[in-house]
Each structure stands twice: as structure tokens, then as C-alpha cells.
């Protein structure tokens, strides 16, 4: 119960930070995706279900805060959370670079999915330029930020949640 409450608080805070404060560290309009990092973190640490629900909550925040239709971010993050959760069951290393690579792959996948859905909704847009101009940059930025976020969330969980890493997943 305590762990679930902490998870909820963490995701909500991350979503609020994503929709408010992250503009302050945007570089040329490119912001890191903090919610995506949390989705990957919880997918690695707690399994794909926790990753998917993180994606639901965070994605809903992003959809509602932005101009997207409800479900746009959600479906992307849910799919990423599921994929990362399934993938990490096969990871046998906890090297930080691997986690960064996982985050990079997840961010790229999330960006591609988001752009694809956006293109389906409005075919007049140019998805290639959007990917080149925004998705790639945001992917790198998110990957670079992920070790810091992983460390912070891990420390918070250790201090407040007294959580022990699940034996099935790699401990971030």
C-alpha cells in the first residue's frame, strides 16, 4: 500500500513537473520526457504492469495539459511501458549505460509512435521533419537526463518506500 501511494505521488509530481517546470530547462524548445523516464524506471523495477499504469497516469496528465486528445500520450507510454517491462526480464546486466540505452530506445519509440498517431489524425503534417526536428533531440535529452532521474527516484524509494528491488527485475 505504501509503495503504491509513493508510486502515485511520484508519478503525479513528475507529471506536474513535466507540465510546469521542465520548460525552465528546455533547450531551444526541446524538453526531456520525465514521465517516460519514470515509465521505464517502473517497468524495469516493478514490471510491465506498473510501467503501463505509470504511462496511463502520466500520459493522461500530458494529454490533458497539452492540446492532445486524451489517449494520445497514454497509448504511446502504455506500449513503451509494456515493451520495456517485457524486455528487461531478459536483461542480465544493471550497467547504467544499458539503462540509458533502454531509455533512449524507449524515448525514440515513444516519439515515433506519437508522431505516427499524430500523422494518422492529421495526414497533412510532415512527420519526417517533426521527427528530425523534435523527436531525435528530445530522445537524446531524455536519455541524458535519465541517470539523474533514476538515481533520485531510487533514493526516494529507498528512503520513503523501504522498497526492496524485485528479484525479477533489475534494480535501477
Amino acid at each position: 500500500m505504501r509503495k503504491n501511494a509513493l508510486w502515485l505521488i511520484l508519478v503525479v509530481i513528475a507529471a506536474l513537473i513535466q507540465t510546469t517546470w521542465l520548460k525552465a530547462i528546455a533547450i531551444r524548445g526541446v524538453e526531456p520526457n520525465l514521465i517516460l523516464v519514470l515509465v521505464v524506471y517502473f517497468a524495469i523495477a516493478s514490471g510491465e504492469e506498473r510501467g503501463m499504469f505509470t504511462g496511463v497516469l502520466g500520459g493522461a496528465f500530458q494529454d490533458v495539459s497539452g492540446a492532445s486528445i486524451l489517449g494520445h500520450h497514454v497509448v504511446c507510454l502504455v506500449l513503451v511501458g509494456y515493451g520495456v517491462g517485457r524486455l528487461t526480464t531478459r536483461l542480465i546486466t544493471e550497467h547504467p549505460a544499458v539503462k540509458v540505452a533502454v531509455v533512449f530506445t524507449a524515448a525514440l519509440t515513444n516519439g515515433l509512435l506519437y508522431t505516427f498517431i499524430e500523422y494518422v489524425q492529421s495526414p497533412g503534417s510532415n512527420p519526417i521533419s517533426k521527427i528530425l526536428a523534435g523527436v531525435i533531440h528530445a530522445t537524446f535529452y531524455t536519455a541524458l537526463l535519465s541517470p539523474v532521474v533514476f538515481l533520485l527516484v531510487y533514493l526516494v524509494e529507498q528512503r520513503l518506500g523501504r522498497a526492496k528491488p524485485k528479484p525479477r527485475g533489475a534494480t535501477p
Binding site: M52, V74, V75
Partner: peptide, 17 residues
């Protein structure tokens, strides 16, 4: 269970979309 959850969530999102 996880696949079912995924299917439900994706379905709901797609419906909303």
C-alpha cells in the same frame, strides 16, 4: 494479466483517440 491490461488500456486509448 499484463497483456490483458495492455490490451484494455490500448483499446480504451484508441477509442478515445
Amino acid at each position: 494479466r499484463s497483456a490483458v491490461v495492455l490490451a484494455i488500456l490500448v483499446a480504451l486509448s484508441l477509442v478515445s483517440l
